[in-house]
């Protein structure tokens, strides 16, 4: 028994109910009740003009299976999540490795630089990317001035812009997930591999990478979930061209006042996230039993 367990078993009685009750009531009223209502609405029928017919139909969900347009949006959303997870992994791994292994006296500062963007709102950072990537933004004006291009490149208001923006916004999450695994890895293992004659690439592929897979899985699933549910960056960087589930939810709800369909899109997104969290927990459990087996 750990100290924590001991502390937890010490106190019994009716008090815990009173302690958690306020939060529980608040969550029932402002979290569970709204979601239940939304679920009910997702089976209603939309009547053009903003009204709803209180019935039970599956047509809002059926659109995702029958309508190729909405099927495409589901596919695009998943693809976007995968792309962003991939790029954050590629960029986050070297960064996390450096943070975990460095003996520099600026270590604390290097950490702060990774965490600081997390404390800066996504709107502000997306605005920064708009300044960099827009038609007369920094990249285009520099390339034009140096004569590399004749016409400004289209770097945003398309998919590319969304991927760049989301990769940057979510990079800290991936880095921190990888770093926590790499930090707990014994550097002696890598040294041993070197002493046994492995070169750097072999050491990485056969020692470091396999041992850091739990972090890779955690970070990727986390980033994937956040990327497919992101709204700010796809809206601002993607413009009207890029449609993902979250922007469809917003558009259907606020512009078209089609609450039933918006609700169905929202629950489709929620189902995707739910499946991922389920897979993630499975991975976590198998990862743990794998560690125990070692």
């Amino acid at each position: 028994m750990t100290a924590v367990d001991k502390a937890a078993t010490k106190l019994r009685g009716k008090t815990p109910v009173l302690l958690v009750l306020p939060t529980f009531i608040h969550f029932c009223l402002f979290f569970i009740a709204p979601l239940c209502l939304l679920l009910v609405y997702s089976f209603y029928r939309f009547v053009p003009g903003g009204a709803m017919e209180e019935t039970f139909v599956l047509e809002n969900y059926a659109k995702f299976i029958l309508d190729p347009y909405y099927r495409g949006i589901v596919r695009d959303t998943i693809l976007l999540g995968a792309e962003v997870a991939f790029f954050t992994l590629i960029l986050g791994y070297p960064l996390a490795y450096k943070l975990a292994r460095t003996r520099s006296r600026f270590k604390g500062f290097l950490y702060l630089l990774v965490v600081m963007p997390l404390l800066t709102s996504a709107v502000v950072r997306t605005y920064g990317w708009m300044v960099i990537l827009s038609r007369n933004g920094i990249v285009n004006s520099l390339l034009l001035k140096w004569g590399f291009i004749e016409q400004p490149l289209r770097l945003m208001y398309n998919r590319l812009g969304v991927v760049i923006g989301l990769t940057e916004v979510l990079l800290p999450f991936m880095t921190l997930a990888l770093e926590s695994v790499l930090r707990n890895m014994d550097p002696a293992l890598e040294e041993a591999a070197h002493d046994l004659g492995a070169n750097s690439l072999q050491t990485f592929l056969r020692v470091t990478l396999p041992l850091s897979l739990p972090g890779v899985a955690t970070g990727s699933v986390l980033v994937f979930i956040m990327a497919i549910s992101a709204f700010v960056t796809p809206t601002l960087m993607g413009g009207p061209q890029v449609r993902v589930l979250s922007t469809v939810v917003y558009e259907q709800a606020l512009s078209l006042v089609n609450w039933p369909f918006s609700a169905a899109v929202a629950f489709t997104l929620l189902a995707l996230v739910g499946v991922l969290i389920f897979v993630y927990n499975k991975l976590l459990i198998s990862g743990k039993s794998w560690e125990v087996a070692q």
């Binding site: 979290f31 979601l35 549910s229 709204f231 939810v249 917003y250």
Partner: peptide
Amino acid sequence: FLSPLTFPAIVLGIAMVVF
């Protein structure tokens, strides 16, 4: 109590406006 951390804000948004 911890679930809002991973809950898509957009879903909560539409749920709240409806509610």
